[in-house]
Simulated scan of single mutants.
Amino acid sequence: MSLDGLKIGKRDSQLWIEIDRAEKANAMTVAMMEGITSAIVQAGADETTQAVVLTATGEKLFCAGVDVREQSPDGDGARQRERRSHALAALQDAVMVTPVPIIVALNGLAIGAGAMLALMADGCVAVEGSALSLPEIDLGIPTFSGANILTVLGGRALAADLIQTGRRLPAADALNRGLISVVVLRHDLEQSAKQAGEVLGSKNRQAFVDNKRWINRGLRSALEEAREEHARHRAKT
């Protein structure tokens, strides 16, 4: 199945979702986020799907985050910001609660919401030279969600460092901090992501999702708080 900016298809017992919008740095539109969310939710309800792998085309960028330049179909900028916010929240929730494992195959730089997805996934296989980046501060905007995700998963010191400087965290450093699963050569990326999905997908589904729900409870709570703060911040602008 091919949607605008996405390629979605089954590979044996795994669902592969590929972000395919290289001309826009693989930034996600509202429709793309909704499409990814729908595919993940459907995979979770399908007993024949063992895992979901999320990756992207190209060798430089995994995802530049949400496309903030996407125009509202009705010309209402405030409403478009709400649509983006709700679409991203639904996608993040799907990653955190879907009963099948979500594996990110990180083919390049993950920025903003793209980095958040890589961090939140059940597993992340990254190519050498890839990196995570939450550079919103360099655009003059805060990232409450990014700050909370990093604080929960990496600790306050790392969150303060990456969020307040906007610097990139190389995949090798992310691996050493336990934020991603493995770093591989580019020609090994797909096979390594497939293997990661097979390992996690072979576990008892009910036990896996119960553990996942419990593991992610602190992250979900932190994100709810961040979303409330984002909403207050949007109301002021």
Rank of each mutant, 00 (worst) to 15 (best):
R234N: 07
V199F: 08
R84K: 07
L219M: 14
D20N: 13
G123H: 03
T237H: 12
H187D: 15
V182D: 11
R84A: 03
L61K: 08
L109K: 12
T57C: 08
R167C: 07
E70M: 09
R227V: 05
T49I: 15
Q92A: 10
N216I: 08
G58V: 08
V127A: 09
T49G: 00
A121D: 04
P101L: 07
M33K: 03
G146V: 14
N211H: 13
G155F: 10
L175E: 09
L61E: 10
D122N: 11
H187R: 11
L119M: 04
V104Q: 09
T57L: 05
N148K: 15
L150I: 11
D4S: 14
A174E: 01
I141K: 10
L54Q: 07
T37F: 03
A113T: 02
L3S: 13
G5K: 09
C124S: 10
E190H: 11
K60E: 15
L223G: 01
R84Q: 15
Q14R: 09
Q50M: 13
N211Y: 12
A56P: 02
E225Q: 14
L179R: 04
R156M: 05
E59D: 15
A45L: 14
T29V: 04
L158Q: 06
R217I: 12
T151R: 15
Q42N: 11
V152Y: 06
G35V: 06
E23P: 00
D188M: 12
I103C: 07
L6W: 11
G75Q: 00
R205K: 14
P99A: 10
G129V: 08
K194F: 14
I40P: 01
R84C: 04
G197H: 07
G35C: 01
L3P: 00
A25Y: 13
I17W: 01
Q71H: 00
L189N: 04
L3Q: 15
R186W: 04
E136V: 00
T237Y: 09
A27S: 15
E228F: 00
A110P: 04
F144Q: 08
T98Y: 05
H230R: 09
I17Y: 02
L88A: 15
V97H: 13
I149H: 09
A94H: 11
P73F: 00
